[in-house]
Write a protein that binds this DNA or RNA. Structure first.
Lengths: 347, 347
DNA sequence: GTGAAAGCGCTAACAG
DNA sequence: CTGTTAGCGCTTTCAC
């Protein structure tokens, strides 16, 4: 009678299982790890013992012996509002590959951020890293990734460094297509609210705006491009500045949804009717976009899918399945809702 | 010359540090773990060696030997929209106590959810659990917690079981005070949108609504209490039903902010002006609440603080600092914004 | 197919 | 205050 059967608290170990099944611990290990070379009859016997004893492999023991944690580390800036989707995507992949996710928010202005990240890998808490901007764009972090010999994949990062493992999206192209959409509605006075300068993706969106304007032969008007900071309040501020222009823009394209919500709030407050007098468009398609009124036309950045793909790539990398194409791009798509319409009085 | 100094990839171990500092590995261990009884001079020497060798303690080694993971597991339902605040709160506490957070979303309808959770603890991946409803309210999970001998703290859960480690909030009382606030504005036709029946906290909010109505001698009107499901769309549905009543309610109190946003959207769409013709109030104070227009009057549920407290309690529990008062309550507070006002034509 | 032996890197218990 | 010894529970290596 084992300790377990006597109702004692001691967890059963691989040795208990081996004894009960009448095999060696190595064989139990093989069964646990789904190794092929075990006779079916033996496998069954071991599995029965495992069930009977309610055996569950001890994670630290396995980690120590195998030198793998089966954990991925998700590194992000502490107050990112996008982390939810990314996390969910990463979890989607982890779940199917039997990995766990250790989340590690950090202050991207902290001086020893690279040290902190390195410790996760060097201390064997995680096998690899998933990184999100702006943390992933920091020089110190770049240097760590380039030289530190640690498996990683970035999500939505700079995508400039060659050989970098990354998953990105087509910010620029799709931003241009938003401008085309607005132009097709008849807008000629189109404003743009730029995103935070520390986020490289934001510059790409601005580039896309410029390209779209040019492609549609719409002039970029002085004072119609304003600098925001990605948050709601800066949308309010930028919106106020834009509404003071005369003539006003008929459409505002914002580099993210939070700022678009701010622009809409100030428009409401100023008695500017949406979308009749002002069309507003955002970028990201956060949940808010569908829940404000009028519902926001935006661009769905497939963050969850991107993160899932990133985690899958990372796990492949950890397994040594080297792939040639390590920089992947997932397409974003235009989502038209009620916040955009033809301008009331086309030029 | 050590391997490290030769630029090799092998990570240095406690033995390397001991050798370099001229002490035993046990002394190095003491320094790492901040144990008191080490002479300052020795400590300095060890610390220098650690720096020189870029030594970082191997987590699995320490986990295996100490039988602790220094990880907390955060268990929540996969598509919870509140998890962000909770996660951040838990991380606040973890960070200062040198714990890491392993996140574990699950499908609360899954039959083997208890097994899944048990495995985290039994497999020594985490030392203790932080649980959020509805997962924490499931009978199978309750049973596991009651009998499984695993350290845990629930957040915002049932708070009925005595002896349960929990952090809750005063949903009922504060819901009543929202009614008092609306009544003080002059509202007499107050509607309520109930939350998802699987969430116990939602029933408490409804109870609070009823109590508030009674305390203010306001009648609960037939057809003014409707059943929602916590999500935006159900707010739209419930709002539509309420607006069809005649006379209409002058105020709608919703059991959460998502539903309040839905009510506001359908009001906008129906040309009902907010807050003049209809006041809307929510519960939770999610980021959305401040970003819709008009900004939503709601109740700030201090989820982040609650989670931080829960994690702190859990860590105390893991350290054996038994506390008498294991059920804590953190007060929620009324946040008045622009979505509520005196009714246009008081009865 | 299966097993025996040797660690993985650390801490616990105790000895000094 | 410091060191020695003996594992923690598993995988790895290699032998059979």
């Amino acid at each position: 009678m084992t300790a377990r059967e006597r109702g004692e608290l001691r967890k059963s170990t691989i040795a208990d299982v081996a004894e009960r099944a009448g095999v060696s611990i190595k064989t139990v290990s093989r069964v646990i790890n789904r190794e092929p070379k075990v006779r079916q009859e033996t496998r069954d016997r071991v599995e029965r013992a495992i069930t009977d004893l309610r055996y569950r492999p001890n994670s630290p023991g396995r980690m120590l012996a195998s030198r793998r944690s089966y954990n991925l580390g998700l590194i992000y800036n502490a107050n990112s509002s996008y982390i939810n989707s990314i996390q969910n995507g990463a979890l989607d992949a982890c779940r199917s590959e039997h990995y766990d996710l250790l989340i590690h928010p950090c202050d991207y202005r902290s001086p020893d951020i690279a040290e902190e990240i390195a410790e996760l890998v060097t201390g064997s808490k995680v096998d690899g890293l998933l990184l999100v901007p702006p943390v992933s764009d920091l020089p110190a972090v770049r240097h760590l990734l380039d030289t530190g010999n640690m498996p990683y994949v970035t999500i939505s990062g700079m995508t400039t460094a060659s050989g970098e493992w990354s998953v990105g999206t087509n910010d620029r192209e799709v931003s241009a297509s938003m401008v085309s959409y607005l132009a097709a509605l008849g807008h000629r006075r189109i404003a743009f609210v730029r995103g935070h300068p520390d986020h490289k993706a934001m510059s790409r969106r601005y580039q896309g705006f410029l390209e779209g304007m040019q492609a549609n032969s719409v002039d970029v008007i002085d004072g119609f491009v304003v600098q925001g900071e990605n948050i709601f309040q800066s949308g309010i501020d930028c919106g106020r500045r834009l509404l003071q222009q005369s003539p006003r823009p008929t459409a505002v394209f914002c580099a993210n949804d939070h700022m678009a919500a701010g622009v809409m709030a100030i428009a409401h407050e100023s008695g500017v009717s949406l979308p009749k007098e002002l069309s507003v468009a955002g970028f990201d398609d956060i949940p808010l976009a569908g829940q404000i009124w009028p519902a926001l036309t935006t661009i769905r950045q497939p963050l969850r899918e991107m993160a899932s793909l990133a985690a899958t790539l990372l796990i492949q990398r950890l397994r040594g399945n080297e792939t040639d194409n390590v920089a992947r791009v997932v397409d974003a798509e235009l989502v038209t809702r009620a916040s955009t319409a033809a301008p009331a009085s086309p030029d």
